[in-house]
């Protein structure tokens, strides 16, 4: 095994790139300004949002009064509990989903066996099927299986994430075969090769897949809507949708809820970047 100690600190050739810095700042502003406006709107009453729309005035981003009433109202109602349910559902989904996906991706990328391509094709097809198209048949299956109105009933459809398998497979294909050879010569089992050789060099790919599974589940709406009727199992996006009634909508609460729901994956991404961002292929091989 050759040792190539490389640290991906992005020190791509030379010192700080000022052109890149300026572009990075400008581009991020483009993406963050609308989100910032949403955040400001989450801190003021609905009527204030609409008062400030037109014509252009500083009030569009400087509210007359800043307040967290929207958040208090939201978390004082069923949203608070639903938020926790969503967290629990997503946590379990990511854990199960990652185990399934990592194992399957390893088999599809590294192991040789008959029918491998057919199985990979099935994986690709599985993430192409629009979930909205299978939601009603699936809910009837879940009803037969006694999974309606259960916590696992919320979790299960999210654990099956073909995209996560695909993403990990693409990464595992790039892991040099020399790594595995060295380990198998020492008599390591496939499970051990996967755990001790592949997983340590796949930090970013695994964290990206975790994010894929997480966001897929975190934003799911239609499934919890039709698979669960008990208010105690209500998830956050559904609780949030109820800011819209037949004749009117609480836009302040809608934005507050959207912000609250955005904070979790955004934080998750920051953490994952910090802890796993450096576990790249080069740096893992010591």
């Amino acid at each position: 095994m050759r040792s190539r100690a490389r640290f991906h600190t992005g020190n791509r050739i030379g010192g700080t790139s000022w052109v890149a810095t300026v572009s990075a700042v400008l581009l991020s502003l483009l993406f963050i300004i609308p989100a910032f406006w949403m955040m400001i709107n989450s801190l003021r009453p609905t009527v204030d949002i609409f008062e400030s729309l037109w014509p252009l005035s500083p009030r569009v981003i400087i509210p007359t009064s800043l307040g967290v009433e929207n958040y208090l109202t939201l978390f004082g109602g069923p949203f608070g509990r639903a938020f926790l349910v969503s967290m629990a559902v997503c946590l379990l989904t990511v854990m199960i989903g990652l185990v399934l996906s990592v194992a399957a991706a390893y088999a599809l990328a590294v192991l040789r066996f008959p029918g491998r391509n057919a199985i990979f094709a099935a994986v690709v097809i599985s993430f192409m099927v629009p979930f909205e198209a299978i939601a009603i048949p699936l809910s009837q299956l879940f009803n037969d299986w006694g999974l309606t109105n259960t916590f696992m009933g919320l979790v299960l459809p999210g654990v099956c994430n073909g995209l996560a398998i695909f993403n990990l497979r693409q990464h595992f294909l790039s892991v040099p075969t020399s790594y595995r050879e060295a380990a198998t010569v020492d008599g390591a089992s496939e499970l051990r090769v996967l755990w001790s050789v592949f997983v340590p060099v796949s930090g970013p790919a695994i964290s990206n897949s975790a994010l894929l599974i997480f966001l897929g589940q975190w934003s799911s709406y239609l499934w919890p809507l039709i698979a669960v009727s008990s208010p105690s199992l209500q998830v956050a996006p559904l609780a949030l949708a109820k800011a819209f009634t037949e004749h009117s909508a609480d836009y302040g609460a809608t934005f507050a809820g959207a912000m609250a729901l955005a904070i979790v994956p955004a934080t998750l991404m920051l953490i994952l970047q910090r802890f796993f961002g450096r576990l790249a292929i080069g740096s893992g091989e010591k």
Binding site: Q140, L225, I226, F244
Partner: peptide
């Protein structure tokens, strides 16, 4: 159930 979702919910529940 949110007003906008009533139809979807009824469809799936009645099917059970």
């Amino acid at each position: 159930v949110a007003f906008n979702d009533l139809n979807s919910v009824l469809d799936s529940r009645m099917a059970n």
